[in-house]
Amino acid sequence: MTIRIVHYINQFFAGIGGEEKADHKPEVREGVVGPGIAFQQAFGEEAEIVATVICGDTYFNENMAAATDEVISMMEKYKPDLVICGPAFNAGRYGIACGAVAEAVVDRLGVPVVSGMYPENPGVDMYKKSAYIIETSNSAAGMRKAVPPMARLALKLARGEKIGSPEEEGYIPRGIRQNEFAAERGSKRAVEMLVKKLKGEQYVTEYPMPVFDRVAPGPAVKDIKKAKIALVSSGGPVPKGNPDRIESSSASKFGRYSLQGIDDLNPENSETAHGGYDPVYANEDLDRVLPVDVLKEMEKAGEIGSLHEYWYATVGNGTSVANARRFAAEIAKELNAAGVDAVILTST
């Protein structure tokens, strides 16, 4: 039986237009569109791209929940055995859209997904656990090289075959560890690895250790009585009602909120958006997460120069490192521009 595939692409690859058409709403077309032609060639008789769903990147990213629902309902009608998203190369919003669609397809339609992205695409860190993402180059010029491994992996997944290692198949490691029995016992593998390391030969570690950013502490504030202090938190402290709808986990954004007219946080003006801890005590008195009351008192008493007018907040609960790094860079840029001397970072 021919494998049924639905393909997801953005407005650019559908030939609708560039940034000016990025608000294009989801639509579905029968058969192949754009890069689907190359995939269909690679599949030959084994699989058929029965439909292509197209959505503008801006529309998708600004209406993520609704756009996902629309895209999934369009796909569902075609009863796919597998979905292909992209490839998105290094297009960030396209990558995020491909990833979000992939996650929803796996969760709601229960079929596998193959995508393709450049390793630094933010969609990789956010969605690599949901979809197999083939590593591609950083621009559409790499299409010819991206299609064969994506098509090969798609057929394997659709047939329910055993999937090999990232190196064998070409996908970006999903960060999922799976047990298997090796040919030699662990001690023998260790001795072999040591002999190679001593000889300066190539060896492959069995567990690449995660690399943590180590941030050297900045120099001490010279004169705290003149310093402008800002508050930044990953504990989810937001104005009452969570106006930016910061997610309770795996946050995709941060918020900037004014402290004008606020001397104290209380259940009327603030709450936490964080879903990873018991929020009762934070919601009773959010100064416990973001010490606004004390800093305002210190500001009045002249113990600090001033408290920056805005606080920044996001949720650190399962938030990807890639997103956290992006938030930090953007927040730091704004704080620098505002002449802030020091920051108090709070978590939970």
Partner: peptide
């Protein structure tokens, strides 16, 4: 999962 490496078991990134 003996850590003297007495067995064959290992985990791989997938």
């Amino acid at each position: 999962t003996n850590e003297l490496g007495y067995g064959l078991l290992t985990a791989k990134g997938r």
